[in-house]
Design a protein around this nucleic acid. Structure first.
Lengths: 81, 81
DNA sequence: ACTATATATACTCTTTGCCGTATAATGTCA
DNA sequence: TGACATTATACGGCAAAGAGTATATATAGT
């Protein structure tokens, strides 16, 4: 049951939800991921296009993994993101 | 199902493998994703930490999606991702 | 309302992704 | 081996990520 991420907002929602599920503050996640609290805030609000490294670090701090899955809906739609 | 991505090399291998499965050249993927062929090369070789936007675009060109999954410890869950 | 805590903004600075473009290296096949 | 196709590197330039730091807004809790 993977949550599909197609834009910054999808990522932000997933991060915020996971964080609250673990009862953590942004600063806690930030420390675990070795980033700033401000960055976690930006990520959750979809206010920035993070680097892959950063995404992986923050997700790891939330005990989450990034994975690649085949699209169920075939075809390439350039207007989808 | 889901291939876990924890670093640039993981991503590169996944991209290259998917691309070859579809019998596409780097320049084909690049065009579909609106990026340079050189970038696809760098991605496949893990030579760069791409931005999330870029990763999503390239994966979309390969009919793949990025997803977030809980990090599983031990044990084996037959209901895969 | 007051206080303490949590989250969002702001500013400068350094690093880096990605571009356009070009070329070198490698692979493929006649 | 030579011509062609594919992939890897290179360079200058611009935009943006992320850092450090500080501060302005929420949001709770009593």
């Amino acid at each position: 049951m993977g949550r599909i991420i197609r834009n910054n907002n999808d990522l932000g929602e997933a991060i915020r939800q996971s964080r609250k599920n673990m009862n953590l503050r942004q600063v806690d996640v930030a420390q675990k991921a070795s980033v700033r609290q401000a960055l976690v805030s930006d990520l959750e609000n979809g206010a920035t296009t993070a680097k892959l490294d950063t995404v992986i670090k923050v997700l790891a701090a939330l005990d989450m993994d990034l994975s690649i899955i085949p699209r169920q809906k075939a075809g390439f739609d350039p207007t989808e993101y």
